[in-house]
Nucleic acid binder design. Structure first.
Lengths: 118, 118
DNA sequence: TAGCTAATTAACTTAATGGTGAACTATATG
DNA sequence: CATATAGTTCACCATTAAGTTAATTAGCTA
């Protein structure tokens, strides 16, 4: 009987990434630091909603926030993204394999079609 | 004003992966097909709970299920894992960069320490 | 000080998630 | 047919998540 802790960092990162708004925010932060209002601009959401999303991202360690005057510039923190990449990377052989199978299948089809032509 | 759809496949995949029980199930399925009870064995959870987790994984396209007699063997479906890997891969340069910065920082520290010694 | 801008917090609603036990479906077998 | 095994569905409960509006904090500027 395994007892999994309910909020390990990897789970928190996956959960934070499970929202398209938050993923879009990270994409925006690829271009560099941004204030909350700059991040909010493209979305049809209230500022408190944006604030909550940013808190989720910060809680997952995916962003960090500074202070300058009344602004809280956000910056991308890639650590958890690397953890996600490392986790998912262990499955690479499976999708490579299934692409191989698809490839073989397509070759087989082509072969049969060629036979049909003949 | 961007209008993001609330349950695109990538979000569904990330959400499914945000639970350590479900990630453990996928890890188990790396070894090959398994029945529901085989999958359930390591967990201290009721069978309905297991069934729900499997439904979430199936809904995300991360597993598929067959039938043989009264068993529903589950198998890993790596497609969405590849999509996750592809998404996160776009951030690789960021963690590479920060590791570089860490590397430089550590080298700098070592340099200073050496100077202190001298 | 008053007022503007940036952002967060509070209080609330609604919906989704994760769990349970009990009942049910489906298949195999004595 | 009766019973055991495999698994799902139902009805329910507690917690969390995502959004809102209104109020609040913090810092700049006239």
């Amino acid at each position: 009987m395994v007892n999994y802790m309910k909020s390990d960092p990897l789970s928190t990162a996956f959960a934070a990434l499970a929202d398209p708004t938050r993923r879009a925010m990270l994409t925006r932060l690829c271009e560099g630091e941004a204030t909350v209002n700059e991040i909010a601009a493209p979305f049809d959401l209230s500022l408190p909603a944006i604030s909550k999303h940013l808190k989720v991202l910060e809680g997952a360690g995916l962003i960090s926030r500074g202070r300058s005057a009344q602004f809280r510039p956000c910056r991308l923190e890639p650590g958890p993204l690397k953890d996600v990449a490392d986790w998912v990377e262990r499955y690479r052989r499976f999708w490579d394999e299934s692409l191989d199978r698809l490839d073989n299948y397509l070759k087989e089809i082509q072969y049969k079609e060629r036979s049909d032509d003949a």
